[in-house]
């Protein structure tokens, strides 16, 4: 039994497989969120917050577990891009949105330690997120790490953790940053994900398949590895862009709404 989805080179079958590492990971995220929110926070949380949390956790689980997880790990680059988009652009911000109320209630008045403030600063968060995105999309890293469960876990976990960092300044009002108002958040979201556009473009225009694991994988769809890679590029370009635009719109219109109420 594999504990985490990896590129095995095996012929794909629709027979269900258990990946216990993924359940443990999702349970650990749930436990971490519960500890961060504090005792009794969930019972007081609004229905929307609970729904966001359950949705985020479910997306995290579904994008990593069978069948999308193993297909993304060893068969289709496009599935890998879809997995990345779900984990980084949906699961991570939804979980943070759910935690927003409890975290503000618990930590709103406290002063964060300097290292944590530095880590959650928009600049360092954006740099960390894009560094992870860059490293985990190079062919050497992908071909070296994806064939083993631990290697694939490193990539998948790095995406989720760096995405939490990236979305934190947008979603969480703590630690308070005076300069980081709604217009800056919109700017941050659009500029902070420009690198995804570049990666997607490289996938779209590359002459050859970039990743050995997908080029040499047993075929599961009547689609060449090159076409699959172009589809992955399209998902990186359009999928991420669409979600970022929606996220930026939410930030912007909430700001307008709040401004109107204050006036």
């Amino acid at each position: 039994m594999q504990w985490w989805c990896a590129a095995t080179g095996e012929q794909w079958t629709w027979t269900w497989r258990a990946y216990p590492g993924i359940w443990i990971f999702v349970a650990a995220v749930a436990l971490g969120a519960w500890l961060l929110a504090g005792r009794g926070a969930w019972s007081r949380a609004a229905a929307g917050g609970r729904a966001a949390f359950i949705s985020g956790l479910a997306l995290l689980w579904l994008s990593n577990d069978w069948p999308l997880g193993p297909v993304a790990a060893g068969y289709l680059a496009s599935a890998h891009a879809l997995q990345f988009t779900i984990v980084s652009m949906l699961a991570a911000p939804l979980i943070l949105v759910a935690l927003r109320g409890p975290v503000v209630a618990r930590f709103g008045e406290r002063r964060f330690p300097a290292p944590l403030r530095a880590l959650l600063h928009p600049l360092s968060a954006a740099i960390a997120f894009n560094a992870v995105v860059a490293a985990t999309h190079t062919s050497r890293v992908v071909d070296a790490l994806m064939p083993t469960g631990s290697g694939a876990f490193v990539i998948d976990a790095a995406w989720f953790v760096s995405a939490l960092l990236f979305w934190w300044p947008v979603v969480m009002p703590v630690p308070a940053l005076r300069f980081f108002g709604a217009p800056m958040k919109v700017f941050y979201l659009l500029v902070g994900t420009l690198f995804h556009t570049a990666i997607g473009m490289v996938m779209l225009v590359a002459e050859h398949p970039l990743y050995g694991i997908y080029e040499l994988a047993p075929p599961i769809l009547p689609m060449s590895p090159h076409t699959d890679q172009q589809l992955a590029g399209g998902i990186m370009e359009l999928g991420v862009f669409f979600i970022v635009v929606v996220g930026a719109a939410i930030v912007f219109f909430r700001w307008i709404e709040r401004d109107g109420q204050e006036a």
């Binding site: 590129a7 095995t8 080179g9 095996e10 012929q11 060893g74 071909d143 064939p147 694991i213 040499l216």
Partner: peptide
């Protein structure tokens, strides 16, 4: 062929 893992090169080159 169809025998998982035998002699396979994953991410080969």
């Amino acid at each position: 062929c169809g025998s998982p893992g035998d002699g396979r090169v994953v991410g080969g080159g």
